[in-house]
Design a protein around this nucleic acid. Structure first.
Lengths: 250, 250
DNA sequence: CTAGTGCACTGGTCTGACCAGTAGGCTGCA
DNA sequence: TGCAGCCTACTGGTCAGACCAGTGCACTAG
């Protein structure tokens, strides 16, 4: 009590200081996407460290998706625009380590897709509506082509809805979680022998949702979207997790 | 057309192969949290590369939050349990680069917190309910102490609700987005001169939500939670973004 | 004027060295 | 015998200097 309050000192590694500086420059806009960093050999001069230290810092920034470097490039590393890749990566890791069950992932999709539809019903532009129409049309056309094509059209539909929600966070998370879910059950769907029935059913559902969005009936669109997602995935979710999913239906 | 279809070859760097191998070992469970990697000098033998290459690989894995290393530690790097830290980091970056507006963040919180309450109303245990009670009690006690203490109790409440939702993804995302939002508006709240009124109002709102959760009325809890979040933050959101937030109220 | 060749530079990798820490064994004292 | 304290053999962090395979550009030869 009393006396000066000392902060715990943590030894900061040289490469971390470099990471901080460059990261800060990117986040503050002093370094814009597309711009180039000096070469490693020049950076070692600017930071007064050895090349290995510079390289370790660059590796970290690269792992965070802020930079990209290419051997032989006469310019230095390139500053990248933000991409959800690292978001995707860490969520995938979370799912892989089996901290996340399929049930939780599907539930999260129900939440996100429901909200996206709710918002899209209010905020959609005619162009976005046209995109959704086109996607459903593509789904119809894809039934005879194959499941992969169908799935791509399906994804396009959900993407259009997410974009129409005007919320980038919803878009990104939706995208990330969707691809993880699809990955998890890809083999099961491939084995299914009534895929055509599945596709036809899915199309009907999408049409219903789209009608509600078009009518501007957000709550109805959200409800339908959640129900459709539930119906589509419930078969792959273990029995004991299904009750939780039903908590999102009314 | 015709002829063999060749795959584009991408030159894969040595350190990336190391990252893949170690990452795979972690994700497959061959390397469990708490376990140690061999020392860098030994790894360079196992992978037949130089130490710099090993170190670059370790730096990447460290940046992804899979490892931690400490100088002087006679054991090698430690395998870490998954933590949302990197998820947090990438979301923060997304927000920093100003790709995300405060409105979008608040909207996302409304979605997540609403869903968390909806699920919590169904799934809560008596212990979780007690935690929520305790958190509200702590909020009441904190009014006279200071805003920081109050805010901590507030966070505890939302955490308890998120945990009761039984969905780790909701928990993690909620946590991440909340801390970003609080960071963004921390200075504005600090300047506010009617913080006491704000706190009292907030407590009343929390009590209402808690009652709905206790009663098992999910939809009502969700509606109240979204409304409360809206009321609390709408003042900090630019006028033109508010309409989108109202899309989540009914 | 253009096609082709070199050169100067890039990032990726390697070698070998030093430093400041840490832990655990060892020594010597009580 | 028990323990305090030193010593050593490690660790990761950093440095210096080197080589290689690529790349783009300027220059040159036709």
């Amino acid at each position: 009590m009393g006396g000066p309050r000392f902060e715990p000192v943590r030894t900061v590694r040289a490469y971390e200081r470099i990471v901080e500086q460059i990261e800060q420059a990117v986040e503050s806009g002093k370094l814009r996407p597309g711009e180039r960093l000096p070469s490693e050999r020049e950076l070692m001069g600017q930071f007064s460290v050895s090349r290995s230290t510079v390289r370790e810092a660059l590796r970290v920034l690269q792992a965070r998706g802020l930079l990209r470097s290419r051997p032989g490039d006469p310019n230095g590393a390139e500053v990248l625009p933000f991409s959800p890749a690292t978001l995707h990566k860490s969520m995938t890791t979370l799912a892989r380590v089996d901290e996340l069950s399929l049930g939780e992932l599907v539930q999260f999709r129900m939440v996100l897709d429901g909200s996206a539809n709710l918002l899209a019903a209010r905020l959609h532009t005619p162009e976005e509506l046209a995109e959704m129409d086109a996607a459903v049309e593509a789904m119809r056309a894809a039934v005879q082509v194959g499941y992969d094509t169908f799935s791509a059209a399906d994804v396009a539909f959900h993407d259009a809805v997410a974009r129409a929600s005007r919320n980038k966070l919803i878009q990104v998370c939706n995208d990330v979680v969707r691809s993880i879910v699809l990955n998890l059950i890809a083999d099961k769907i491939a084995d299914s022998d009534d895929r055509e029935a599945l596709m036809l059913e899915s199309i009907r559902h999408h049409e219903e949702v789209l009608e509600a969005v078009r009518a501007g009936d957000g709550p109805r669109a959200a409800r339908l979207a959640r129900r459709k997602m539930y119906d589509y995935y419930v078969g792959y979710v273990p029995e004991e997790e299904r009750e939780a999913l039903r908590g999102l239906l009314e």
